[in-house]
Design a protein around this nucleic acid. Structure first.
Length: 351
DNA sequence: CACTCGTGGAG
DNA sequence: TCTCCAAGAGT
């Protein structure tokens, strides 16, 4: 047992982690250096938090840079056309976030004159801002005391206290434990310190306990089974669905359709598709369901994995005409990944 | 409250 | 190849 041992109390643990954060904080485009007293623009904090929901830092970073370059303030974003923002979000996934992002920006720019609420309760009323994001923005942008609990914090708490019940049922207990450590001292730095620790040291796999400033207080580390936390209930198997996508071209242009505002890929442009069902589509079924009569040619199939199902998508291509949003090939970057993948297959792999 | 909702990188 | 999973929210 080290000198700090397992007797490390809450104040000592807090001090150790904040000291670690002062020395090891990640440098991120939306973040001010720790302790400097600078506050980050609430717009940057909010935008980054929404982009980072269930999304990795490397994936979200180029989107954050593009959004803030193109729309430097929340009012700039609020004034933009829906289609432009959805196109800019394409590839980032969970497209309800983009719809709520615009709704939130317009609420802040309109009813609040471009000023974000500075309390957790006020933030929580905004579209797309839930318990985590409200707490994170309140703490990071406004330095308000808040219990900021994301997946990182849940993992740190599960190990620190060797919480046996599995996620997601243990969420309330993990949040309660996190709250037992939170104080009004440097709330923004504390929240980010916990998340940075989870992301870089207390990682899901192969945690770097020899670099952990609070390993002396960690119940799981003391037992030696830290990597087995947090316990998790097994996830249901992912079913497979089958569909058909039609790539209709007119020279350089591709026929795209705007998807309904809610549901999967809601509000995004896409290729015309069939239903996505359990049974594969035969050639005859696919051709009968085509959006227009044309000399459809088989372009093979693509595989794509969504959160709760896997998709096999047959792709057919033809030259022709139909009512659609005709888009130059260069504009295909506005498509969600599944359709970009299908379009590339159709344009390059005619069978 | 269980389910829906994307994507790409790591191991 | 396959599993896991990343700064969750809405319904």
């Amino acid at each position: 047992m080290t000198a700090k041992g397992n007797r490390m109390n809450a104040p000592a643990l807090r001090a150790a982690l904040l000291d670690w954060y002062d020395a090891h904080a990640r440098s991120l485009p939306w973040r001010a250096p720790p302790g400097a007293g600078k506050r980050t623009d609430p717009y940057f904090v909010w935008l980054s938090e929404v982009m980072l929901q269930q999304t990795t830092v490397p994936h979200a970073t180029p989107y954050f840079l593009a959004f803030t370059r193109r729309w430097p303030t929340v009012s700039d974003l609020a004034a933009e056309e829906d289609a432009e923002v959805m196109a800019a979000w394409a590839g980032l996934g969970y497209y309800a976030r983009a719809r709520n992002l615009l709704a939130c920006a317009r609420a802040v720019a309109g009813r609040r004159g471009g000023v974000f609420p500075d309390t957790e309760e006020g933030l929580l009323r905004l579209p797309g801002v839930g318990a985590y994001t409200a707490a994170a923005v309140a703490a990071i942008a406004f330095d308000r005391e808040a219990n900021v609990v994301d997946g990182n914090v849940e993992r740190v708490m599960a190990r620190l206290f060797a919480v046996e019940p599995p996620l997601p049922d243990s969420k309330p207990e993990l949040k309660r434990l996190a709250g037992s450590l939170a104080t009004a001292d440097r709330p923004g730095d504390w929240a980010q310190a916990l998340m940075d620790l989870g992301a870089t040291v207390c990682r899901p796999k192969a945690p770097l306990c020899d670099r952990c400033p609070i390993s002396g207080a960690c119940a799981a580390y003391a037992r030696g089974d830290q990597e087995t936390f947090p316990r998790k209930t097994k996830k249901a198997e992912r079913p497979r669905r089958h569909g058909v996508a039609w790539l209709l071209t007119d020279g350089d242009r591709v026929a795209l359709v705007r998807r309904p505002p809610k549901g999967l890929l809601g509000g995004m442009l896409g290729l015309p598709t069939s239903d996505w069902r359990a049974a594969p589509w035969t050639d005859a079924e696919a051709l009968a369901a085509a959006p227009t009569v044309a000399a459809w040619r088989d372009a093979g199939e693509i595989e794509h994995v969504f959160t709760h199902f896997a998709l096999t998508l047959r792709v057919f291509r033809a030259e022709g005409a139909m009512a659609a949003e005709w888009t130059p090939r260069a504009g295909l970057e506005a498509l969600p990944s599944v359709f970009l993948k299908a379009a590339k297959a159709g344009l390059t792999r005619l069978v």
